[in-house]
Design a protein around this nucleic acid. Structure first.
Length: 597
DNA sequence: GGGGGCCGGGG
DNA sequence: GTGTACGGCCCCC
């Protein structure tokens, strides 16, 4: 038996002999070798709630199902019995779901749509981007001739549970890439417009522009053809072996373009750790370029999550983050610069390099927070980088639901979803139109971070929401304006989780203060920022129509209490000599008109 | 005020 | 992939 320690980067599963095998992709933090760890001990399952459990068990057995178990789970605050159906392959889950849905004894089916690798991370309670200890043995690759895996990649068969040994500082080797294309007319078309430059930049001092033209610049490497350039691109990524491969709009432009050119030119784009090619997954309205075992992060959607800007061009974002202008060449002029063969060609090399350098700088600056979020939420960095805050919260709650033996509510059906979208949005925060004039001695009171406190103080949660029946008046809180009631006891699922988040954040902040190693201090800072974002967005999630724990009344109650709190605080401020001049949702401005001595 | 359509980033 | 998808803004009626 051997022990392997990996920085967990990515996870998926493959099928062998009709059975699933989980693959954990990581790097040994000491040796930097790539490791693919196989776990064939994990199996898919789902839950059924029956009208009559025994009848239902019989019906399921009649369908040939054997692996049935009775379990008690908490379903929105109520303990209930569920039948846990264990299957052999993840793809059987949706099939079985559809075939048992209409059985007379089946009331509802739960947890039938959780991707297998995510289920694994939740059930094993291991966090991506943490250091994970594995027990098992090396796999002799000669037994896997069908696998085209490089010499320096280690295959490892796991023989016991993975152990999460959380470590705060983890390296973050970032490599960016960017391409320039020869498009004389309109937007580039991969069928006929060749790639003329491919630039790469690392946050550890690596700079390279690959091109089919020559230059004296030291970062330019000339390739004999576009095919050769694509092969060099793959080789460099393998050599550099970064933790993160970043691009700007690379999900929808660079990566699909590179893939199409490679296909057209019959070049194998073996970018994956297992030598697989790039694949594109449709997510929302756009693509996600996946490279097996590596983490590809498109910074564009990420920036849209983190910053509020009027535009999100690479130039604009770079300027905002670094207060510097970057070199710009208009997209429709690139082919002219290329054809010029004079100093404008040199300018184009600089531009191409600068794009990759700016991209890696942005990536280096913003991905540590994304990594912290991945480690908090417990889902792969690749997925986290493409999630909205609402989705992150949902996966975080799913992780906690497992810990607390809560059953996960189903996603709304498309009908429910449309209904939710149609219903009028909850009234938002209180707004007081600004007083005219110029004021001095302004104070600002921020309430945004008060929403989590309101949720905790009033125990606002889908599982504490009550009509008050059978309870005495002192057993619930009553919301102003709408009269919604929330049980005081027991503590609701969501308030208890927010409580944990806030406690954890205080703990991390304390550690951060005491810490003397600057890198560790920074790591703690990102961790506490991640926790803060989670806590502060928790209320907004009630307006997210796809939310599994959606409860319109909870959202309404939070803002109603919020309005009451803010109006109270404004009134109080007047007693202390302030005059409120403007208020909007989560804070108000007041001018001090009292005695300044 | 509500529904439908378009757009974002990239060259 | 235990798939099938966003949100804001503008226009038009």
């Amino acid at each position: 038996m051997q022990i392997k320690t990996i920085l967990l980067n990515d996870i998926d599963y493959i099928t062998r002999n009709d059975k699933p095998i989980i693959r954990l992709f990581g790097t040994d933090p000491e040796t930097n070798e790539n490791i693919i760890a196989y776990d064939n001990s994990f199996v898919p399952y789902m839950y059924v709630r029956a009208y009559n459990t025994n009848e239902c068990l019989n019906q399921l057995r009649d369908m040939g199902l054997e692996n049935l178990e009775l379990v008690t789970k908490i379903d929105i605050g109520t303990e209930r019995e569920f039948i846990k159906i264990t299957l052999t392959h993840p793809q059987e889950v949706p099939k079985l779901r559809d075939s048992i849905r209409d059985l007379p004894e089946v009331m509802e089916i739960k947890e039938y749509d959780i991707p297998f690798y995510r289920r694994y991370l939740i059930d094993k309670q291991i966090m991506p981007r943490n250091i994970i200890k594995l027990e098992g043995h090396l796999i002799d690759k000669t037994n896997y001739a069908d696998l085209d895996i490089d010499e320096d990649v280690v295959l490892f068969k796991m023989e016991s549970e993975p152990v999460d040994t959380k470590k705060t500082i983890t390296r973050n080797k970032v490599l960016s890439f960017d391409i320039e294309v020869y498009n004389a007319e309109g937007m580039p078309e991969a069928e006929h417009d060749p790639i003329i430059m491919m630039s790469l930049s690392g946050n550890y001092g690596f700079n390279r522009v690959l091109s089919t033209k020559k230059s004296d610049k030291d970062y330019v490497e000339t390739c004999s053809s576009e095919e050769e350039m694509l092969r060099r691109f793959v080789a460099i990524i393998k050599e550099e072996n970064p933790d993160l491969l970043v691009g700007y709009n690379s999900d929808n432009f660079d990566l699909p373009y590179i893939k199409k050119r490679a296909d057209t030119l019959k070049v194998k784009l073996k970018l994956g750790v297992d030598n697989s090619s790039v694949r594109f997954m449709k997510r929302g309205f756009n693509n996600a370029g996946t490279i097996k075992g590596r983490v590809h992060v498109d910074l564009y959607p990420l920036i849209r999550q983190y910053m509020r800007l009027e535009r999100y061009t690479l130039e604009r974002v770079y300027e905002e983050l670094f207060d510097e202008e970057k070199i710009d060449v208009p997209g429709d002029k690139i082919y002219q610069y290329w054809d010029s063969d004079d100093e404008r060609l040199e300018e184009l090399f600089d531009y191409s390099m600068d794009d990759a350098v700016s991209t890696v700088k942005i990536g280096d600056k913003i991905t540590p927070l994304t990594i912290a979020q991945s480690r908090l939420v417990g889902q792969p960095l690749f997925d986290i980088a493409r999630m909205t805050t609402g989705q992150m919260i949902e996966w975080y709650l799913m992780l906690k639901a497992y810990e607390k033996n809560n059953i996960v509510p189903n996603k709304p059906s498309s009908m429910e979803y449309n209904e939710r979208r149609m219903t009028k949005r909850n009234e938002g925060g209180y707004v007081k139109e600004p007083e005219k004039g110029l004021f001095e001695h302004i104070a600002y009171l921020d309430f945004k971070s008060l929403y989590p406190t309101i949720i905790i103080a009033q125990n606002i949660s889908p599982d504490t929401f009550t009509d008050g029946e059978g309870l005495s008046e002192d057993e619930y809180y009553v919301c102003p304006e709408n009269g919604y009631k929330f049980k005081k006891e027991p503590k609701g699922f969501i308030p208890s989780i927010i409580g944990n988040i806030l406690d954890e954040r205080q703990k991390i902040k304390r550690l951060m203060k005491e810490e003397t190693v600057p890198e560790q201090k920074k790591a703690y800072d990102f961790e506490q920022q991640g926790l803060k974002r989670l806590a502060n967005s928790m209320y907004g999630v009630y307006g997210y129509s796809r939310f599994r724990w959606y409860k319109k009344e909870c959202g309404a109650a939070i803002t109603a209490w919020g309005r009451e709190y803010i109006k109270d605080a404004m009134k109080k401020s007047e007693e202390y000599g302030f005059k409120p001049i403007y208020a909007d949702t989560d804070g108000f401005y007041a001018t001090y008109i009292g005695d300044l001595d």
